[in-house]
């Protein structure tokens, strides 16, 4: 059971890495280069309602955001938006809200991509500092387990978990955007928790053995 689990994990990581380096991550629509239109609805609306209308025309991969002083305008983003789709969306909005918005006044704007790495890079120093302090703590608290062994386990544990999570994200095509930051944080926290639990367990075992020897 344990062997088959390890095998599944290794295969997942390898497959994930192949996907990452060949196809790449499935980027969220607002992260990759996309197009957007601004529709002035002229009254308060619910994002979900407009999103539903746009989905019927464009498909699932869209985002709707409110703008305007009265939050009565909608920015609809999708990978590509054609003029025909604009007309269709506007017709649907007119029908739903009883408006007479003209599609002629709506321009399709190109929005360049945002780099996912740049979303993460400003936090790199926090990660480095936190990791150094944690590793120093590990080295002091678990020195009986061997400093090199402890640090190596921590590095491998952290690296493997981050790799595994990245692979799963790539394999099951979770849309990646700024959410990558939360995923990295949580994976890091879980990795630290798992590694510390392992070390604590070992520390208790060593303590018991020492007590037995004394007796």
């Amino acid at each position: 059971m344990k062997k088959s689990l390890v095998l599944i994990l290794i295969v997942s990581i390898i497959a994930g890495l192949i996907v990452i380096f060949t196809v790449g991550f499935n980027l969220k629509v607002t992260t990759k280069a996309h197009q957007e239109i601004l529709v002035n609805i002229g009254e308060e609306y619910k994002n979900e309602e407009v999103k539903q209308l746009a989905k019927e025309v464009i498909g699932n991969d869209i985002e709707v955001q409110k703008t305007g002083d009265f939050e009565d305008q909608a920015v609809i983003s999708a990978e590509t938006i054609s003029k025909e789709q604009v007309t269709e969306i506007v017709n649907k909005i007119n029908e739903k809200y009883g408006k007479e918005i003209s599609d002629g006044s709506i321009t399709i704007n190109d929005v360049p991509a945002a780099r996912v790495s740049e979303m993460f890079m400003p936090q790199i120093w926090s990660f480095i500092i936190a990791t150094i302090i944690i590793f120093v703590y590990f080295a002091i608290r678990y020195k009986k387990q061997g400093v090199a062994r402890v640090l190596l386990t921590a590095i491998i544990g952290l690296g493997l978990l981050e790799l595994l999570v990245s692979s799963i994200i790539a394999l099951i095509r979770i849309p990646v955007g700024q959410n990558i930051v939360s995923i990295i944080y949580i994976t890091y926290a879980i990795a630290m928790l798992v590694v510390t639990t392992m070390f604590e367990k070992k520390a208790q075992q060593l303590k018991l053995e020492e007590e037995k020897k004394k007796k």
Binding site: F138, L193, V195, E200
Partner: peptide, 17 residues
């Protein structure tokens, strides 16, 4: 078990991002 998480939290709380 959560001491490393505590360190992580404190360092990040002081982060500028």
């Amino acid at each position: 078990k959560v001491i490393p998480l505590f360190i992580f939290a404190v360092v990040f709380a002081f982060g500028t991002w």
